[in-house]
Simulated assay, not measured.
Amino acid sequence: MNTPTDFRCGTVAIVGRPNVGKSTLLNHILGLKLSITSRKAQTTRHRLLGIHTTEDTQFLFVDTPGFQQKHINALNKSLNKTVTQVLTEVDVVLFVIEPMHLGDADRKVLALLPKDKPVLLVVNKLDLMGDKGNILPLIQDFDLEFPFIEIVPVSAKKNLNIDELLKSIRQHLPEQAAIYGADELTDRNERFLAAELLREKAFRFLGDEVPYGIAVEIEKFEMEGKLRRIHAAFIVDKESQKPMLIGKGGEKLKQISTEARQDMEKLFDGKVWLETWVKVKGGWADDERALKSLGY
């Protein structure tokens, strides 16, 4: 790939407490749905690289799990370790918060932020603020909490101020050639992305109890010409969760699978044949071996 002499390329961590819109922000920057989203905490469980390449810059965004402060089991310890490790490895950090709010959960993430790297405060959900003048005293308060390089208000959902955010990030990236090809969007394979889309739909369609005890295992992923044949198992923690996921006459599982398949076809740009079922693995979220086999 030809790169001009002033080309910049670097890694950018997106961090914050659960549900502040980190994955939505990444998806809007990339212009497609790569990172899964839902209103539930713990939706993002993996470190995910999203690649955004322009004429003079390659942004390597690392979407991290929200820093977990409840249900501290082996899974959540693993998620938190991912966040702290990413912060030591990247060039720039985006600390994402909601407007008019810097709560205890935000402050715990704030305490992890590196003092030796450029950290931008990204105030998301700007569209929800009635009087935009309210943001000025808010910004001044945040400035006292941490030496942010810059404070950028955005709305990931409404695509407001995203270009300004990218300009701000670019200034702090190292001058070097692109690491990935201009058409590459992630370092993750389709097998991983298929499992994530299935887990997202389960999070969206189920009540609060089941999602934290749910994982997805792709047991088979085969290409037949342009058709992808995918066999996937939902892993639940308790026998009582199985009927919740399957639903009456299999309707819930069918709904989850249909929506996930449609998203896969958009993302992979091809037809998908998907078969899903439910398996019970008691205590998987606190079992180191089970977590390893599921990619955590």
Rank of each mutant, 00 (worst) to 15 (best):
G270D: 10
A74G: 00
I72R: 13
R8N: 05
K158G: 07
R204K: 11
R228K: 09
V152D: 00
Y212T: 02
T57D: 13
E275Y: 15
G225M: 02
K254M: 13
Q255E: 10
I51D: 11
E89D: 02
P211A: 07
K248R: 12
M244V: 13
G207P: 12
F148C: 07
I218A: 06
C9T: 06
G50N: 14
S257Q: 09
M264D: 05
E196T: 06
I162V: 11
L75W: 07
G250P: 11
D91Y: 05
I72N: 10
G283D: 02
E89Y: 01
M264V: 11
L193E: 07
T37W: 03
A202N: 05
L197G: 05
M264L: 09
F205H: 12
L48R: 06
E55C: 13
K33M: 01
V90M: 00
W273M: 10
S257D: 06
R188K: 12
R199C: 04
E251D: 12
F59K: 11
S257A: 15
E55V: 08
I97D: 07
E239N: 09
L227M: 11
E217P: 00
I151D: 08
V122H: 01
N2S: 06
Q176M: 09
S35F: 09
L267Q: 02
F67I: 14
D6L: 10
L49M: 03
L75Y: 03
E184R: 03
G283P: 04
T57M: 04
Y212Q: 14
A195K: 01
V280L: 06
L120V: 03
L144F: 13
V83C: 08
K125Y: 02
L25F: 01
V62D: 00
E239S: 15
T37G: 00
L206Y: 07
K125V: 04
D237N: 15
K40M: 03
R199N: 10
L60H: 00
K201W: 03
A41K: 10
V152C: 08
P137G: 10
A111L: 08
D269G: 00
L267F: 13
N73V: 03
P114G: 04
D183E: 06
L110Q: 01
L49K: 11
T64I: 04
L206K: 06
T258E: 08
A195Y: 03
R170D: 07
H52M: 13
T57R: 14
D263Y: 01
G21F: 06
Q241K: 08
L253C: 14
G283N: 11
E190V: 00
T258G: 08
K220D: 12
K70Q: 09
Q255I: 14
S257L: 15
H28R: 15
E98H: 09
R8S: 09
R39G: 15
W273D: 09
P4E: 02
I214M: 14
K70H: 10
I179T: 09
G249F: 08
L138R: 05
A285T: 10
S155K: 15
M223E: 14
R261S: 04
